[in-house]
Structure formats: C-alpha cells, structure tokens
C-alpha cells in the first residue's frame, strides 16, 4: 500500500471520527451551573409568610410578601440567564459531513508546513511557517486541536515550536498567546463557529491569520517591549530601549515626546521631575530652581539674579515680586527640593 493511500485512509478515519463527535456529544457544550439557593430562599420566605398569616401578623405578612415578589423576580432572571447560556444545538445540516472534513484535512497539507494526525490521542495539529511581526522573530507555531474536547471548553492550544518569548514573561510566546492559549480577539466568534461546524481548514486558517497579525492596542506584551523595552513613565506608551530616556533625578524611563532637559544643568527629566521658572517659563530640574527671597515664587538662577538687580533699582521684576515679603527674614532662598506642598518656610 502506498504512503499516499495510507495517508488518505488516515484522513478518512479521522474525518469520520471528528464528524461522529460533532454530530453526537460534541454538539453539546457544558450546561451552566444552576444554583438552588435562590429557590430555597423563595420557598423559605413563602413558609414564613404562611406562618405570619396564620398568626395574624399583618405587618410581617406584608413585608414577607414584598420579599417573595423580589425573590421570585430574581429567580426568574437567573432562570432566563440559565436558558440563555444553554449550549446551542446546531442542526445536523450545519455540521460538515465526513467527506468535507476529509477534504479539509487534505487541504491542510498544502496550507501548512506539517500536519499531524493522531487517531489514538484524537489530536490534529498543524505547524505554521516561522512568524515574524514587525521585525520580531517569534518562530513557527503548532496549532493542536483535541477533537474530542470540542464542545467541552477550550479544545486547542497554540505552542511555540522554537520559542522566542518576551523578556518580561516566558509564558508569552506571541503578543496574543500566553501559556499556549491564544486570545482570539475579533476572530473569536468565527473560530468557535468553524470548530462547531467541523470546518477545520477555516479554523486553522483563522488561527494562523491571528498569529500573523499584531494588535498593539491589546497585547500580552507589546513588541516594542519584547526585548527589554518598557512603558513611558509619563504617558504609558510602550518604548524600546533605544527610544527611552532615563530621568536623571528619579531614574524612570520616558519616551521621546515626554522627556525634557533642564535648561540650566542639561539633565534629562521626566514630567514629574521638571518644573518651569515662573518668570521666563524655561524648563528646569527642581534642583536648578530657587525661591525668590521672601516669596514662594520658583525661578531660575538667571531670573533670580535679574530680580536681585531689579530690587536694587527698586523696580519689581515680576508681579510676584510686588507681594509683601514673608518667610525667611534673612532672605536666603531655600532649595526647591527642600520644600513640598503644604510646607511653609520657617524662620531660621
């Protein structure tokens, strides 16, 4: 018997098994949990109501009747939800026949690098070509379907054959795969439908297309952080090591758009560690800003000196300078870092 004939027979046997499962128990998903404590609560309240009525306790009976109404409504809503969550029962017409499933299996051979059928373990797996997203090599992935698990919950896994996980998390082998589970995103419903109907070529193709697509807005680890990148401390954007600036004062990383440099000492700053001179509006680090003597106005050294010269000429340098002097009577400016909000200058 030729290899081709053996393969064809295996495909047909697999197709028959898969069809038999899909048309049989595979049609049924697990039944949602039906808790009975709400029913018990309702029957208890009814019993208490009957007791109160027999005793002639009008007020208690009124109150219990309200409770019965509420409990019955709540039970009704729970039963509605239970009905809504019952597994749908696709008609036999919607499930592909063994011939179609076998044709899908044959087509998988042309679509994927490798196809493996395991009749004993009831597993069917395919191997994708190596996947590279935005210049990040992730390697090939094996998509393994356990056909007897169809309808029972998760029935397939996505395994990195040559794993290149994110530096931050070894479980994340792809921006949308964590622990061999693919987060299907917008492909979720189509995948579920393809599996339930036995459209195996569509199922594997859908999973492959998701693996070949990168959604930066919703990834376990973004590609910019794949090899040691991080999030901008100020705006949260993912940044690579090359794009990041390290704040000289707090050592947090910030992106190109959020970083600034102190106009006086040229240190790199994040948003939280930078401040502006209230006179010239220049960006400086807090260490290069000083309080104008006798006020709470933070200014740079240049403006401070200008202000002092103006004071000598009895000309106010800024509106703030016209404010009555308060605080340190010696006129020494406290360094900006030595003060926090709500703190006041205390005379020496």
């Amino acid at each position: 018997m030729s290899t081709k004939t053996i393969l064809l027979r295996r495909q047909i046997r697999t197709a028959v098994q898969i069809h038999s499962h899909l048309a049989g128990t595979g049609r049924f998903g697990p039944i949602p949990v039906l808790y009975d404590h709400e029913w018990q609560k309702l029957t208890n309240t009814v019993r208490r109501f009957e007791f109160a009525r027999e005793k002639g306790w009008q007020a208690a009976a009124d109150s219990l009747l309200t409770q019965i109404d509420l409990s019955a409504a709540s039970l009704g809503r729970r039963l509605d939800r239970f009905r809504h969550e019952l597994p749908r029962n696709p008609s036999p017409m919607q499930v592909s026949g063994p011939r179609d499933i076998a044709a899908d299996l044959a087509a998988l051979d042309q679509e994927f690098v490798e196809v493996q059928l395991n009749l004993q373990e009831k597993k069917l797996s395919v191997l994708t070509s190596p996947i590279e997203l935005e210049d990040t090599y992730l390697g090939p992935f094996r998509i393994r379907l356990h056909w007897e698990e169809i309808g029972q919950g998760p029935c397939y896994e996505v395994i990195a054959e040559d794993p290149h996980p994110a530096d931050a998390n070894d479980d994340v082998t792809h921006p949308h795969v964590s622990g061999e589970t693919l987060c299907e995103g917008e492909g979720s419903t189509a995948i579920r439908k393809a599996i339930a109907q036995g459209r195996l070529l569509d199922f594997f193709t859908l999973v492959k297309q998701i693996l070949e697509t990168y959604n930066p807005d919703s990834a376990y680890v973004s590609l910019s952080r794949w090899s040691g990148g991080r999030d901008c401390y100020d705006c949260g954007t993912s940044i690579s090591d090359e794009e990041s600036w390290c704040c000289s004062r707090c050592s947090e990383s910030v992106c190109d758009g959020c970083h600034s440099s102190c106009a006086a000492c040229d240190e790199t700053l994040c948003g939280g560690c930078s401040a502006s001179c209230q006179d010239c509006r220049g960006i400086l680090c807090r260490g290069c800003l000083e309080f104008r003597p006798g006020s709470r106005v933070l200014v740079c050294n240049d403006c401070l000196e200008k202000g002092e010269e103006s004071d000598d000429d009895e000309t106010p340098a800024s509106p703030e300078a016209e404010q009555p002097h308060e605080g340190c009577p010696c006129g020494a400016a406290a360094p900006a870092d030595s003060l926090r909000l709500e703190e006041t200058l205390v005379p020496a």
Binding site: G185, D202, L206
Partner: peptide, 12 residues
C-alpha cells in the same frame, strides 16, 4: 467559496 481576512486582530 470562502473569504477569510488576512489581518485578524487578537487580543490579550
């Protein structure tokens, strides 16, 4: 006849 989008966005 089948139409399958080439780009399907996964999630996390």
């Amino acid at each position: 006849v089948s139409f399958t989008a080439t780009k399907i966005e996964g999630a996390a």
